[in-house]
Design a protein around this nucleic acid. Sequence first.
DNA 1: AACATCGCCAACCGCCTCATA
DNA 2: TTATGAGGCGGTTGGCGATGT
Length: 358
Amino acid sequence: MGHRCCNKQKVKRGLWSPEEDDKLIRHITTHGHGSWSAVPKLAGLQRCGKSCRLRWINYLRPDLRKGSFTEEEEQIIIDVHRILGNRWAQIAKHLPGRTDNEVKNFWNSCIKKKLMSQGLDPQTHNLMSSSHREIKGPTNKNITSFVVSQNRNHIKQSTSSSIFSANSHETITNNSSNISYPHNNSILTLPNSQTTAISTFNNQYQNPGSSNRTSTIVTSTSGAAWNLKAQNPSQNDHITPNITSPYISSFSLSGNVQDLSRPGLWDEFGILDSSFDLSEVLPRIISEGEQQSLQGQNHDHDHRTLQDHEQEKIWEMEIDKVGNYSNFDHGFMESTLNISGVMCHNLGSMEYDLAWNY
DNA sequence: AACATCGCCAACCGCCTCATA
DNA sequence: TTATGAGGCGGTTGGCGATGT
């Protein structure tokens, strides 16, 4: 049985010979692939179009990165897999020159085993022994990260001595033309009532695929609250993180809760450089009226050029590199609150995930 | 040396989505 | 509205070299 696309012809299967590779390369470099189903005939190959496409994408494409995965690439795969699961094509987009097949093979042959040897469930990235989705505090050095997602609505501290707990409440409404995602994620609760952080994301998608999106992060400490309004790109705004990609957006917050004197700025990609100055952020608390007004402004942001999209891609890549927290010393947890997050949107399948590292 | 087993990974299969007629 | 084909994706297979017995 061949593919449906080509069961009429008799096609060769199995490994590609160097001669076949030559034919395919010559054809595509001179004519482009056009319709893949037409390629075999035009290139003089006894293969089906799908096979040609796969061979080109996974092996012959000139922009492929050959060779073994670097440690950095491995870490990216693990980080993104924690958020997206087995969505190899999406994961591969974070690794220039790598294919979904390659990432998948690398995962199945190496990373999976490595995680299991560390006692981690490769699907959930949790400790395999925990049947409940319990998060032990950072006093337990085995866990340095966890994920809050749609499917994980309640994560609670296992003992009263744990440093933090997290839970998530989400509702999704889907009207035929408007899709809104009200999210209330009580992300972090420290046992000391003086230091409580709550993060809320409100994403309102006017039209999937358009850029009319609004994300709001509300974080409060000691009864005070600050609001980081994420909206469509505002080039001069170095405080507001840009959370605009329809595919994946990531951001990182890092704050010193007690030392308000340390300045910090979002860099141009929306990554917080070191720590932010609450006194600078606090005035940005946005009233409901102001939010509506800002949402109104967002309607004007739907005219992005190709260059904007390219910039967004770069931005995504840069931000996704924020994933290494190994230097974070949990010993400072009581005096320093570090929040970092990765937020993913996939409008196509309407999925929404959050990942946080503490 | 011969055979068995393992592990990697290129390629295939079947399903899904989307565009188009 | 339905049928059809192309492209894309994730799971799985099977060939082949490496390693073990």
